[in-house]
């Protein structure tokens, strides 16, 4: 018998990120990291570096921007 585990992912809108690092610090699985590239407004932005999201929402609630970052569930 196999347990079907839910799969989650984080989507980041690069141009809305201000590179404050809050989500990076909040993530319990360390799947986010601040990149070196700059977005359209001159901020470094966060990237997804590992595919191990557990869908806890810590990054979403830590992020101060309304829609820079969102968590999705695969169904």
């Amino acid at each position: 018998m196999t347990v079907k585990s839910k799969k989650f992912t984080v989507k980041i809108i690069a141009d809305e990120c201000k590179g404050c690092n809050r989500c990076v610090k909040a993530c319990p699985k360390n799947i986010l990291a601040l990149g070196n590239d700059l977005n359209r407004f001159g901020f470094p932005y966060v990237k997804l570096v590992k595919d191990e999201c557990i869908g806890c929402g810590a990054c979403y609630y830590s992020c101060p921007e309304p829609s820079a970052l969102a968590v999705y569930e695969e169904v």
Partner: peptide
Amino acid sequence: MEKLKFGKSSGFFDTFERRPGAIKKNM
């Protein structure tokens, strides 16, 4: 198929039209 689990609330405007300038999506 993906379902939004944590994302922008509809308590906010979809686009921040009242905000002057080019940036209408973040604060």
